[in-house]
């Protein structure tokens, strides 16, 4: 099978699709249903949490049916500041922050990874330091980030950056170290220049490792953003959760959790999809 044929979408036929995948669809639906039933029973017994039915009732309008509503038209999108906008907007605000921090982490992480991958000396020099820094939880960076940037916006981006960068650095470095000697020999025999070597041999050969790092990185970044926004934020989905909690709207909190889970899941798939596009040959 060729790569092009693999990507081509077959004519979609719901009946056939369902017949083929019935088990893959029915099983999760049944599991979800059972989980909801248990939750409902649990909440009706303890009375501390709203049950699923109650959550849907309380958040149906406007949160579920209209994710992009704006509470106060006169504020426009600035209404974000007050939290009186749809969950879609809040998510987008978080995503923008993640995009900036993650992009920075990717660029710098890959560069640093390649450098320490090429030089065993540098790798040995920085490895202990990076190993220690790597284990620091995202939230522990917050005070430092605030002290540096004096503002929650850049601070949030910094936390994302500092959380996502380690797996990117390490996986890239491993990719460089694991590069088969054969490729290097080909480059040597052909006498490729440094630039030619970097772009036509080194970079393509580490793509699979790089994307492993990028995939781990996006997961961590998404974990970090919620935490950062919850503590010190004025926009974003984390802020929304904290705001809703403070207003005692637990149903909204639960809805936001579902949002976060779904978005995180989709981000992961997105990076995975990008990886298959770039390195479809490995």
């Amino acid at each position: 099978m060729t790569a092009t044929a693999g990507r081509r979408l077959p004519a979609f036929d719901i009946a056939t699709f369902f017949r083929r995948n019935s088990r893959r669809i029915i099983a999760p639906v049944v599991a979800l249903f059972i989980a909801l039933v248990i939750w409902q029973i649990f909440s009706s017994v303890t009375q501390s949490l709203p049950g699923p039915i109650q959550v849907i009732q309380e958040t149906w309008d406007p949160w579920i049916i209209c994710p992009f509503f704006v509470g106060d038209e006169s504020f426009g999108l600035n209404g974000l500041q007050g939290g009186d906008v749809g969950l879609g907007w809040q998510t987008i605000a978080s995503l923008i922050r993640v995009a900036i921090g993650y992009s920075l982490a990717s660029i710098i992480g890959i560069i640093v990874g390649v450098i320490i991958g090429i030089s065993p000396l540098l790798y040995q020099a920085v490895d202990p330091m990076f190993q220690v820094l790597r284990t620091v939880p995202p939230l522990a960076w917050l005070p430092i980030a605030l002290a540096i940037f004096k503002d929650s916006g850049p601070a949030g981006i910094f936390i994302i950056f500092v959380t996502a960068i380690w797996p990117i650095i390490y996986n890239t470095a491993v990719g460089v170290q694991q590069m088969p000697q054969d490729y290097k020999n080909v480059a040597k025999v052909l006498r490729l220049s440094g630039k030619e070597y970097f772009f036509s041999i080194l970079l393509p050969s580490i793509v699979p490792y790089m994307f492993t790092g990028l995939k781990l990185g996006i997961g961590l970044a998404w974990l970090a953003i919620v935490a950062a926004e919850m503590l010190r934020g004025d926009t974003g989905i984390g802020f929304y959760i904290w705001n809703a909690y403070n207003s005692g709207a637990l149903s909204e909190v639960i809805l936001a959790l579902v949002y976060i889970g779904l978005v995180g899941f989709m981000l992961d798939k997105l990076v995975g999809f990008a990886a298959t596009l770039v390195s479809s040959d490995k």
């Binding site: 088969p180 054969d182 020999n185 080909v186 025999v189 006498r191 393509p204 050969s205 040959d281 490995k282």
Partner: peptide
């Protein structure tokens, strides 16, 4: 150098 080209044992083709 390319005047002594090698055909390696495991082909050494660039997979991408």
């Amino acid at each position: 150098g390319p005047d002594r080209m090698v055909v390696f044992q495991n082909y050494s083709l660039l997979p991408w």
